[in-house]
Nucleic acid binder design. Structure first.
Lengths: 163, 163
DNA sequence: ATAGAAAAGTGAATTTTATTCGGTAAAGAA
DNA sequence: TTCTTTACCGAATAAAATTCACTTTTCTAT
């Protein structure tokens, strides 16, 4: 049984995506060499992959430490509100806050998990105060002490699934 | 009191970094227009920022859903091992696993938080089995039900801190 | 303040890369 | 098989990156 993906994407497409997700600034000429196609053919494929939505964004990941962000926090929280409208307000507020890098709805003990980047301790207090104002009942904050791994690379290549 | 950052980076540098972290594929000519500098001057600044390590990586963020990754999981775990050597082995193993996008050492109830991307339910069981083999004592898995926000953008611009 | 040195910027020229285009080969449907 | 569609190639063109000689600005030390 073939997966859904291979009906749309062939091996070269996956190869291109895998290179781009690691090194988006590669030149089209170098990419063409790696996938054994002519530059125009390679270029057309990349444009098609963008068009069809396989690439969400193309970004530079900046160095948090060098830019003065000392605290990475994971915040687990639950709300006491259960009206659809109020939840939307809270979520919209979270989306707007630039310190909030990620926000996910989770199964388990808490409703939400936030990933929050903060320059210094004082700002953390201000941030948590902002959360309280939104009607969050339970908040548990964990600081990231050490980063073991932080990647955006999806395991889309055959050989890359470990055992 | 000026922050540490502004001793090294001026406003134009921050502007460049902010544009790059949102849109890394912008042309140098367009970047030059936006920051009101000539293309060579802009280019030299970007190269300097790369050299000095302000940019960690330049990547394409792929669409998880379209590539068949149905499950995003957050896994909280603790080890019963406290010997330096054994911890290194576990962390190295986690770093190698392509399903593990992130791994952080945390304060609080659990030692580690993992962000794990999985295609389907069956693979999740296999993955958790792999964790058990590493000597992890406590594991709590939460599934991400809905993504409210998922960004890599650091709030480095003056106006971008919300109140 | 001011002269000298160092750093950063500019515009034109060059090199490299992206992109377009006409023609060809391969793949799929009738 | 024949027709149609799709994808590919190589050459030509357009656009962008990069280099370079020169100028302006900024900083330092007198």
């Amino acid at each position: 049984m073939e997966s859904i993906v291979s009906k749309v994407l062939d091996k070269i497409d996956l190869q291109i995506l895998d290179i781009l997700q690691k090194q988006v600034q590669i030149s089209n000429i170098e990419m063409a060499k790696r996938v054994n196609l002519s530059p125009p053919a390679t270029h057309a494929r990349i444009k098609r992959l963008e068009q069809e939505g396989f690439i969400n964004q193309q970004v530079a990941i900046l160095n948090q430490e060098k830019l003065g962000f000392d605290l990475l926090c994971f915040i687990f929280m639950s709300t006491n509100i259960h009206q659809e409208e109020q939840i939307k307000v809270v979520e919209k507020a979270l989306k707007t806050m630039p310190e909030v890098l990620e926000c996910h709805c989770l199964t388990g003990e808490y409703d939400y998990l936030l990933k929050v980047i903060i320059k210094e301790r004082k700002e953390l207090e201000l941030f948590i105060r902002k959360l309280n104002k939104l009607g969050i009942t339970r908040i548990q904050t964990s600081l990231a002490l050490r980063e073991i791994k932080c990647s955006t690379i999806l395991p889309i290549c055959e050989g890359s699934i470990s055992n």
